[in-house]
Amino acid sequence: MSSSETLIRAGGLRKRYAGEGGRRGHLALDDVSFELAAGETLGIVGESGSGKSTLARVVMRLTSADGGRIEYCGRNLLAPNREDAAFLTRQVQIVFQDPSSSMNPRRTVRQALSEAARVAGVGKRNMEDRLIELLDAVGLSREKLDAYPHQLSGGQLQRIGIARALAVSPRVIVADECVSALDVSVQSSILNLLLDLQRNHGLAYIFISHDLSVVHHMSDRVAVMKSGRIVEEGETAAVLGNPSHEYTRELIASVPGLEKH
């Protein structure tokens, strides 16, 4: 597996949300382009209204784009045909932000994970083993299989969210603010887990966060978004150590602790 293989190429992405009652909707993505290579982490940092969450949804086809193009290994990610769609589902997955709504409150961990594993073609016979394997990979014991969401802590729920994303053995995981809703003391263990998984499985991450310190820690390359555009992009150390865009500088300056160094 060549580590320089480009998995995702996105260009000119545009998305305008529909407005209500004759108003023109808000432009969430404005000519956004980026690339993601295998095994690397691209950090996307921005504040509210920057469009970073919209970007996550567009990449996951949870919402449509008005313009632009995304290619995954040459296949059209935005408007795939049926065969490509099935393929893409197993290549790119997502971990969400809010552990309390990441699982259906009426279903067990087992049901939630099987739902994902089935997509990967895991049959009844192998299901139990696969589920245990997944829980293992995220550091949870097998007893958790029969637990309901309200019996689990935020950190544990987030691990299950990661296990769910892993179930289809993807090559890319979009992490949309996946530690923002956790207690500080739990965040680091989840971040460590993500790094471990990246090493062991060669995963590529699109790591979205408003927290510059966390993005700096996790990313090889970083893209700074503001008002739907990418204002600066490059190697993490370069962008954050020597920012060229005004906004990036402002962002760095506003993080207590970051400025000291």
């Binding site: 808000h26 509210s48 209204g49 920057s50 469009g51 970073k52 969450s53 919209t54």
Partner: peptide
């Protein structure tokens, strides 16, 4: 999506 709501308000 709080992000979008914030924008709606600012536009308003």
């Amino acid at each position: 999506m709080s992000e979008v709501n914030q924008i709606e308000q600012k536009t308003d």
